[in-house]
Design a protein around this nucleic acid. Structure first.
Lengths: 234, 234
DNA sequence: TTAATAGTGTCTTTAAGACATTATGAG
DNA sequence: CTCATAATGTCTTAAAGACACTATTAA
């Protein structure tokens, strides 16, 4: 162990997912990209991010740089992975701690998710996010794999929805993420039986059909982890 | 994004697990700790680790510092989490990337795992690893939770064993990690049916009973992840 | 009434768990 | 032969999946 560690810069990046309608009308998983204004990779698309300040936590740095570059303020960030290959940034050694979050559609509004593009921010279907700056292609690929592996753990899909939601809405989220149709009856039994959601007693009116029961998420002990929430502190 | 990032030091720590007999004869999950020789926390036990050098990858830094402090050289390191709370180290801002590995008993030999203690290294039952330096208590708690959540994914347990192993040995690993007995017949069906192991045709002789078939692990597509191995690059 | 989705029932298939039974090599 | 563990069989129960059916609201 050397007493004088070398200069390594610490950055954060964020992979934000939202379910938006693609040009073909299908609901697909999208993520926001920002256009780089300086070298290296000036003009290329990249994940939102920036440097970690001396007194802020890593997740706070993720939140701050995401808001600065895109205006997004998700309620919940989860650490995804830390990328630190010595050659991953041409400008010198950078270790990037990457966070991920799921946002609702109205949270994405006004940030380039709608028909009007916001300057230098673009929501992109995840399968089209290639040719990004640095090693961000790899990061995106890893993030979408993790999303699909973990959607089974019910709390993941609920971040795409509001506090109250119908089971049909929850099912549509799962269908969009997994890219396959699910049986409404079996889905209902699975979700209700898992204890991950409870009915609120309210109903969602306004549709031209029978109004569905509204549910809300409950934190299950298994999903809580050793610190009573999704990940460790920091 | 500020052009001049502040000075933040980057370190790695490693949580190494081995299955060793406890004083009471039970096989328990242990991990190696090293005694700190300088401030902060001089004299306290801590996880093996050290600073990341300029030209080495994060996992290489984990491997190197682990070997320097304990002599251990596990074949496979998996990134666990990155801890970066601003106040986690009294000596100034430190971001620690933590790696985890599982080692076989003979790999742990000569590093304090046997009856003869090696200077400044001690193998400790995970439940007794409290009062460590920095935030290492939290790190250990998170690592053991992850180990227990993931032992179901068969490849995890196989790192504790050699390349070839009997199903009884594999079952004993699962029993030690999960701290509960498993039905041999049902365990066999589950593991064989999962395709995670295949018989080698060899048998393990020497016991005073019917010699068991030996198996080896096979990398399943689901456990491989998006890059054909357990985690992303870096 | 009709359209449309909410919600239930039920059958089949698959897997988990408990536990009895048979197989085989060492001594 | 006997002991000990390997390996298989079978029964029960629970869950997953396919799909028919009933319920309820708005227009």
């Amino acid at each position: 162990m050397s007493a004088q560690p070398p200069q390594i810069r610490v950055a954060v990046s964020t992979v934000i997912f939202a379910l938006l309608p693609a040009p073909d009308g299908e609901i697909r998983v999208h993520l926001p990209l920002v256009r780089r204004t300086r070298d290296p990779y000036a003009g290329a698309w990249a994940l939102p991010g920036g440097w970690v300040c001396a007194q802020e936590s890593l997740s706070d740095a993720g939140r701050r740089t995401l808001a600065e570059t895109t205006g997004l303020r998700p309620s919940y960030l989860e650490q995804l992975y830390t990328f630190g290959h010595p050659e991953r940034s041409p400008g010198g050694r950078v270790v990037s701690v990457v966070y991920s979050a799921l946002v609702r559609n109205h949270e994405a509004a006004g940030t380039g998710a709608g028909p009007v593009p916001v300057d230098n921010v673009s929501w992109c279907p995840v399968d089209d996010a290639v040719g990004l700056a640095f090693d961000h292609d790899e990061i995106v690929r890893y993030a979408i794999w993790r999303l699909r592996s973990k959607v089974q753990h019910a709390h993941v899909a609920q971040h795409f929805l509001g506090e109250r939601f119908s089971l049909a809405q929850l099912r549509e989220v799962h269908e969009a993420v997994l890219q396959k149709p699910l049986d409404p009856a079996n889905f209902r039994r699975q979700v209700e039986g898992s204890g991950a959601v409870v009915p609120t007693g309210e109903r969602l009116t306004g549709g031209r059909h029978r109004p569905p029961q509204l549910y809300r998420a409950v934190l299950t002990p298994e999903s809580a982890g050793p610190f009573g929430r999704a990940g460790p502190p920091s």
